[in-house]
């Protein structure tokens, strides 16, 4: 029995195509990475060569950031951007820096106080630099206030209680919720709506989206959250990466339809499924 198990293990350890890890989806996963990288590279090169690339549709939530910062300026109240649980290497954090930079630049230009709350001390190190850079680019480096870049540990309910307290005490006129959220989503946006702040959410956690939809003025969801950085930069190269992403979506739709047609024509053949498992 032991020998059989050893033999099975030895067999399982044979690399796919001689060099790749023998796990489900290793080759198809690699191909996915290569196709997506290839598409992105193609559209970036096209943009750099000055070829015409399609434009991106408006994302109303992003346009509303300018309106919200403007309103905060009129009311003499701060702008606040919060993110609790995303860590330094999380993809949500990459998106967060796009929003942070944009909102902080606007706040600096409008001479409005900007507060940032985070639950990670490592993310804080970058956030401070991003905000400082935004103030520098807006020509107002002296207006940067380190005390408004705030960290408190990301433990769900203590973080939320402090955030809810800050909302009531500081009364920001514009509130931005960015990244992934959990149960606190049923409290914080509603606290924001009680002080009549304009609220914009860019949320990646589908399960928490309904609470943001019920309380916020604008909600960016699913892929919209990440498209923001490219949208905000308005640079053709960055737009190219979104076009590449959309090409991948169309490809995905075609594969899904093809997979379904194969299943209808030859039930239980699992042809496409097995291909994607390889």
């Amino acid at each position: 029995m032991d020998l059989m198990l050893l033999a099975a293990e030895a067999e399982a350890a044979v690399p796919k195509w001689g060099i790749f890890v023998d796990v489900e989806g290793a080759i198809s996963g690699l191909l996915t990475t290569l196709i997506l990288t290839g598409l992105t590279y193609y559209w970036i090169t096209a943009a750099r060569a000055g070829r015409n690339i399609p434009s991106i549709r408006r994302l109303p939530g992003l346009d509303a950031i300018t309106e919200a910062v403007g309103r905060a300026t009129e009311m003499g109240r701060p702008v606040m951007l919060a993110n609790r649980r995303d860590g330094l290497g999380d993809v949500e954090t990459f998106a967060l820096w796009g929003y942070l930079s944009h909102a902080a630049t606007l706040a600096a230009q409008y001479d409005t106080r900007f507060i940032n709350l985070t639950g990670s001390h490592l993310v804080l190190a970058v956030n401070e630099a991003v905000i400082q850079q935004a103030y520098l680019e807006a020509g107002r480096p002296d207006a940067f206030n380190q005390d408004d870049c705030r960290y408190f540990p990301s433990n769900q309910w203590p973080w939320s209680s402090h955030c809810a307290g800050i909302i009531m005490r500081e009364r920001p006129a514009a509130l931005l919720w960015v990244g992934s959220w959990s149960g606190e989503a049923s409290i914080l946006p509603e606290a924001g709506s009680q002080i009549e702040a304009i609220q914009i959410a860019a949320v990646t956690t589908t399960g928490q989206l309904p609470f943001f939809i019920a309380s916020c003025d604008y909600v960016l969801m699913s892929g919209e959250v990440y498209a923001a950085s490219a949208y905000l930069s308005k640079e053709p190269v960055m737009t190219g990466t979104i076009v590449a992403e959309d090409c991948a979506k169309l490809l995905l739709m075609a594969i899904a339809v093809l997979g379904a047609l194969v299943e209808i024509a030859r039930p239980a053949s699992q042809w496409m499924t097995n291909l994607l498992k390889f």
Partner: peptide, 25 residues
């Protein structure tokens, strides 16, 4: 979730390819 993956992957590629360098100020 599928859309989120593709968009997140594109965001990762933007940093990998050096198009976005906000973390470097």
């Amino acid at each position: 979730a599928n859309g989120l993956f593709l968009a997140g992957f594109a965001a990762t590629l933007r940093i990998f390819l050096g198009l976005e360098r906000r973390h470097l100020g």
